[in-house]
């Protein structure tokens, strides 16, 4: 019997429904888990995503794409395949994709995390027969701390810089991490200053009704005083050198799961690393696999071999996605 989903050169494909999930090549019909560039690509004929993910996807890919949306939990039937989205907790609008055909249920996790970040809809486990999970941080060395603890770390770093006349720059991609920091940082410390690419994303999200703390776009209207007391949120490499060339002392922080590892923290260009990730850590991956009660787990997007070997040892049938379809 052929599988409900198969792996093709364009990515995961459901032959019965004739849809691709987060396809890499140009396809007719694409189901998109979330707006990140490695998931939502331009050039497809038709798009299907969550209501919350759609505005950003349109904003990033052009507004004239043919896009159909579903709220979390609602479903469409495409050639007898029931397709629905369920919160993945990764970023605003991010979803797991559930596909059901003749009682056979598959869930594609997309990117996800279990910890609540205060801005995206929290992850919901979805029972299924086959669970396709990401494994970006599928090793026991990756175990995240509470968000509140990390935010305190960031607050402290910011305050200390402020006292020492140092400009605080925190590197964050314009969709996801940026909003998470804006939403959870202590904005009584100073102004939150955002790079234009972050600010334009914020505008889209605010427009769709997301409540977000006040931010000021980094432009010529920002005063020296604001720079010295504020927190600048900008994509990596966009503002640091400019500020330094203007004579500011700058402390550059990165917020990412990779910052757990010393050798990554010690790479040039970063003065401070915060272990703040939008992906599941080791414990969350294990919990997600357990909670969805899958009979079979396919591992992709990270430590595929290691995490699948581990799951097999735990008595859960698992394969790395790439080997499974060989």
């Amino acid at each position: 019997m052929s599988e409900l989903l198969i792996n093709t050169k364009n990515g995961l494909y459901c032959p019965q429904a004739d849809v691709f999930i987060d396809p890499t090549g140009r396809v007719d019909r694409a189901v998109i888990t979330h707006g990140h560039a490695d998931h939502a690509r331009p050039g497809h004929q038709r798009y299907l995503c969550t209501v919350d993910a759609a505005p950003v996807i349109k904003f990033r890919l052009t507004s004239n794409i043919n896009i159909q949306t579903l709220p979390y939990g609602a479903s469409v039937n495409i050639n007898s395949v029931k397709i629905s989205f369920h919160p993945a907790g990764h970023i605003i609008g991010s979803a797991q994709v559930r596909l059901e055909y003749k009682g056979e249920i598959w869930v594609v996790s997309g990117d996800y995390k279990l910890g609540s970040d205060g801005i995206s809809a929290p992850f919901e486990p979805v029972h299924c027969h086959t669970f396709i999970t990401e494994s970006t941080f599928g090793m026991p060395i990756y175990q995240w701390k509470e968000q509140a603890f990390l935010m305190n770390e960031i607050n402290d770093w910011w305050k200390k810089n402020q006292q020492n006349g140092i400009v605080s720059v925190i590197q964050a991609y314009s969709l996801g991490k940026a909003q998470r920091i804006i939403q959870n940082i202590d904005n009584t410390i100073g102004t939150i200053i955002t790079h234009p690419s972050v600010e334009s994303t914020n505008a889209v999200l605010r427009q769709q009704g997301i409540n977000m703390a006040e931010t000021s776009e980094l432009n010529s209207k920002i005063t020296k005083q604001q720079l010295l007391s504020g927190l600048i949120i900008a994509p990596p490499g966009t503002v640091e050198n400019l500020l330094k060339s203007k004579g500011y002392t700058v402390s550059v922080a990165a917020a990412s799961g990779w910052m757990a590892i010393q050798k990554y923290r010690q790479r040039g260009g970063i003065d401070k690393g915060f272990v703040l990730s939008d992906h599941a850590d080791w414990n969350e991956l294990n919990k997600a696999v357990k909670d969805c009660k899958a009979e079979r787990v396919l591992v992709t997007h990270g430590y595929e071999d290691i995490f699948s070997k581990w799951l097999n040892e735990q008595g859960i049938e698992a394969h790395s996605l790439k080997n499974f379809y060989k």
Partner: peptide, 16 residues
């Protein structure tokens, strides 16, 4: 395998 990522047993210990 974990230690291969960190390259440092002390770090592997404290992370795991």
């Amino acid at each position: 395998a974990s230690n291969e990522v960190t390259g440092d047993w002390a770090e592997t210990y404290s992370l795991v």
